[in-house]
Design a protein around this nucleic acid. Structure first.
Length: 509
RNA sequence: CGCGGGGUAGAGCAGCCCGGUAGCUCGUUUGGCUCAUAACCAAAAGGUCGUUGGUUCAAAUCCAACCCCCGCAACCA
């Protein structure tokens, strides 16, 4: 069983292309693993509690639950728009989730990992948030946004004893680091008793990309216990702390434990953005170890999507909505851009010009190849050209681009979760076929009966390879893949002249 | 001296671990082709590989120092 999770989206705003990237990575992995015969379960959802949601709802004059209902629906709709599929969509306002959180809290408390202590901080009423000691000092204890003095507040909070578990977390990350991605995904670990640093512990947590693991190992050196509650007066919209009516759970246990709800734990892959890595690589393992549960096997950390080289932000007003982008060229084009042109583990950039260029790449390299090939099959052999089975393709000719080699590379990249490289590999092979067609000059071969058998052979070979590559393309471009496979069938070619990726009359930047 | 990432052709990137003719995609120019979506194919132009120094027969690659950009620094995917 491969259990895949996405980060759950915080509901204080509408979905943007960054969320879409997160979801797509999960969907591609899910589809790929399924195609390899794995049983999978993909969970996503929305994180709905917290003061920001409460404030926003208040500003809109609706209840927090109403706001959550509305926004949560937007995220569900995004999955649909992306042609991405989840098995379960969790909402942290679900009654069963709330009950789970309270049980988890009690268990952690029972295991001696929760304690109460006063928390000191500098608070700005305008921002409704605390500012770190250092930052407060830098700003002369005045909020630069609201231009009013910060208040020194001391309140009681519950804390999670993360520090007690740091040695185990560190060891697990180091063990994960030593494993290949494939081994990490397929490995098994056993849960250990709480709070032990048993030397025979086999728990591991692989973090991708590797430099993120360094980042975390560094951070672990100076990690402190984490505050996991707030006075109810401060955070009204949240899960009540069991046995303490004055306190509300503050983000961690509430949001992170969503992954446990459906009972498929441990996750095989958790997909997260780089901003929440530390919570998934430190706080979350601490909670799991505190509960005696196994760690997730792999954390895939992706970067951010910038717009025109700048960070997307509401204040800059440059937030791109996925719906808007999908409207331009459709779902598969959207998936293509975000999976090929945005590096899987690094920051990427979105601009309309780049998006148009990527669409041209898709239309010219793949769309045009399909249509030129299908047309030739129709024109020269009335469509009576089928695909050959895989074994007969490129049998031993090393001088030709070898489909077997391409597929091997593709699988290698997929198994290492290098999705953009895997897609690039497939497109390189499409390019190769385009070049071969030009070199073989089929239109010349068609002119003489003597060369017709040779032409038939070539067309069969190309059609077969395109079909094979189209199958491999399925996790990325599900609709396109199906369309191509419907054209190049085992016994014949069925093509009605449909243009896979039509270009607009004028391409505006 | 907080931590991390990066600086390679007009743009976006690979190559660096394991030193040996600097590569890919897009763009530009020229040529070719006609099966095809004004597409496809080929060729060319375009780079002092951030700077300086060191090691070496040989450095984009290893070492040292420095400069610049970008993240993170307790809930922005």
């Amino acid at each position: 069983m491969k259990y895949i999770t996405t980060a759950i989206a915080y509901l204080n705003g509408a979905p943007h292309v960054g969320h879409a990237l997160d979801f797509l990575l999960a969907d591609v992995l899910n589809r790929y693993q399924k195609s390899r015969g794995e049983t999978t379960f993909l969970q996503t959802g929305t994180d709905e509690h917290g003061q920001k949601v409460a404030s926003k709802a208040k500003a809109l004059g609706i209840s927090p639950q109403e706001l959550c209902d509305e926004n949560s629906a937007l995220f569900r709709a995004l999955w649909q728009d992306l042609d991405a599929k989840y098995d379960y969509f969790i909402r942290t306002t679900n009654p069963n989730h709330i009950k789970n959180c309270q049980e988890i809290w009690l268990k952690l408390a029972e295991n001696g990992l929760i304690y109460k202590k006063p928390y000191h901080g500098w608070y700005c009423e305008g921002c409704e948030s605390f500012i770190t000691e250092t930052e407060a000092r830098e700003k002369n204890f005045t909020c630069p946004i609201h231009n009013q003095p910060l208040q020194e507040i001391s309140e009681d909070n519950y804390f999670l004893k993360v520090t007690a578990l740091i040695p185990q977390i560190k060891a697990a990350i180091e063990r994960g680091r030593a494993l290949s991605t494939l081994d990490a995904l397929n490995g098994e670990t056993t849960a250990r008793s709480v709070g032990t640093a048993d030397p025979s512990d086999d728990q591991y947590l692989k973090i991708l990309p590797d430099f993120r693991a360094s980042e975390i190992l560094n951070l672990l050196e100076k990690s402190e216990d984490v505050s996991i509650s707030r006075p109810k007066s401060q955070v009204s919209w949240g899960i009540p702390v069991p046995n303490d009516p004055d306190q509300t759970m503050y983000v961690w246990i509430d949001a992170l434990s969503n992954y446990l709800t459906t009972g498929h734990w441990p996750a095989s892959t958790q997909i997260i953005g780089k901003d929440i890595l530390r919570f998934h690589a430190i706080t979350w393992p601490a909670i799991l170890l505190g509960l005696g549960l196994p760690l997730p096997r792999l954390l895939l950390t992706h970067g951010f999507v910038n717009v025109d080289g700048t960070k997307m932000s509401k204040s800059l007003g440059n937030v791109i909505s996925p719906t808007e982008v999908i409207a331009r060229y459709g779902t598969d084009a959207f998936r293509f851009y975000f999976l090929k042109y945005i590096p899987t583990c690094d920051d990427g950039d979105f601009t309309w010009a780049k998006y148009d260029a990527a669409y041209n790449d898709l239309a010219n390299t793949l769309g045009n190849l399909v249509s030129r090939l299908a047309n030739m099959n129709n024109k020269y052999f009335a469509g009576l050209i089928g695909t050959q089975n895989e074994q007969s393709i490129d049998k031993s000719d090393d001088s030709l681009p070898n489909i077997v080699k391409s597929l091997a590379k593709y699988h290698h990249f997929m198994q290492n979760l290098d999705f953009s490289d895997a897609l690039t590999e497939l497109f390189n092979h499409f390019r190769d076929i385009n070049a071969e067609i030009d070199a073989a000059k089929p239109w010349t071969l068609a002119k003489s009966d003597d060369t017709l058998p040779e032409l038939r052979n070539l067309l069969e070979n190309w059609s077969s390879r395109v079909a094979t590559l189209a199958s491999a393309l399925a996790p990325f471009l599900p609709t396109t893949s199906q369309k191509i496979l419907a054209i190049f069938q085992p016994e014949k070619t069925v093509y009605n002249g449909e243009i896979l990726f039509p270009k607009p009359e004028t391409t505006t930047p």
